[in-house]
Amino acid sequence: MKAAVIVFPGSNCDRDLSVALERATGTPPKMVWHRETELPPVDLIAVPGGFSYGDYLRSGAMAAQSPVMRTVVEHAAKGVRVLGVCNGFQVLTEARLLPGALMRNAGLKFVSRPVGLRVENVESDFTRGYEAGQRIHIPVAHHDGNYFADEATLDRLEGEGRVAFRYVDEDGEPTADGNINGSARNIAGILNESRTVLGLMPHPERAVEPLHGGTDGQPFFRSLVEALS
């Protein structure tokens, strides 16, 4: 699997994602600067966490207008797999590769902690390594992770099985108690129609080795390598 990681000037999880991808594939991904208009031939484009251009405007709004994102949108249309983590998820919604928006957390505060997730869809190249309904723990760190879409869109996402991950409580249930940021229907990550684009707020790259305190992110990267190699 060949991968590229997009680097905006305010990205700060670009290295972490690159390290996790290299662990999984054995080769370092290409790092692509935000001003680039061409991408190398790759199987996966990853948009990392951070604060793209400072995000003083809506998170991801300016990044969605950047030269490199126009190219990413073109590649996505051709079926190249695109992953957005945290700020990357925000960028993908702003770029309309995924529906909905990420609003300020319902608690209005930044939240950094491991969260319980339930894997809802295991039929994508990102999630095949998990078991359906598997409960995993992955860290989040965000201020704007409150997923919002209109009811029709949410129903469509559910109906088409495009909800990839949901926040759950200590008993593994998607309750209000387990919903760390107020997301509609506890949604933590979604897929596009063709299941080739995934955006999620939790950081799987922060759960790939025992020293991270958990390795529940490993199947995520393994899925990608198995699907795209």
Binding site: N12, D16, G49, K109, F110, S112, R113, A141, R206, V208
Partner: peptide
């Protein structure tokens, strides 16, 4: 307080607040 701080960016944090007597970073 500390859940408002990103304690893991860099993916080298071994222990953060509440986990050990000191923060430990690889």
């Amino acid at each position: 307080i500390w859940e408002q701080y990103d304690g893991q960016v860099g993916a080298d944090t071994i222990y953060r607040s509440g986990q050990a007597d000191a923060g430990v970073v690889r």
